[in-house]
Amino acid sequence: MSQEEEKAKLFVSRLLSNPTLLTLNPLQKEDQIMSFMDLNADQLKPTLTSNAFFLGKSWFEIHKLLIKTLRILIDESLFPGIQRQLYEKIDFRFISILRQQNWPQEKIKEEVLNLIKKIVSSSDGRKDFSGSYNAISRQIVDKYVNSIFTNHTYIHFELTKVQRLKMSKEEVKDMINTSLLLRPSIYVFSSNMNKDSSSGIITQTFAEKVEETLIKEIPALPEKLVKSAVRINLSFEDHKYLQATSRLTSIINSMARSFKADMKIDRGASSPEKSWFSIARKNYKYFGWDIKMLDELYRFSAENNW
């Protein structure tokens, strides 16, 4: 490691060790530090370009080196976390139900891991993967699916009667968690994806292209699962026949993206998840969510004070 790389590592490590970032996931930490460097560039530039640090380097080069170092350090904690999620938290036996034939789980896990590595190699993919990572590591899917299967109302009907998933509750959780991991694959197959920059919604044509490529790249993944994962990025407003798992995963992913474990709930404020669902109900058209699902999830969060 060169002297400059060591200096960069020391600098980034100091930023990462800030206590305010303690409860964030690795990708959220990365996002915070990148924003910090952008917002404070005017103050950082004179010192970092001085003799004591990176003499002779332009701010552009220094910034690039710091971002590269940041990614290396983040990946060191991110990949073990992803592996843990894949190998310990998700059971891929549900794939056999979807394919109607047995597939070796290890092979599927390996292929999904490779795909995730590709996803997080792009800046947009990294940013987007944060929600999936949070949702699985905080077991957000588990508690809502439990409530869905206890209440047997709209979402349960959509999953079991409309989408006709012949799966147990645990298998549905695994399918949604896998969809969450695969969802940002749209960033792998195209840099120009016709994505609405504000709502994150993609077009159906683009979604179909991604599905096609994904099925070719990872033949172990059943078509139903691939569609469920990729179409999370479609708007329910425009596609009324969107699978229930896609609609549900889209909502959970967005909520998990804004999840903050250390959030202090002030007296007089609603709980974080109840607040999120309540706001989402007002923005459902904009983000292309299923309002009936939001209503039901809002009710669960309010009843359980989540």
Partner: peptide, 9 residues
């Protein structure tokens, strides 16, 4: 949701 550039640092 669309604008980045806020940090707790």
């Amino acid at each position: 949701d669309t604008s980045s550039g806020h940090t707790r640092l």
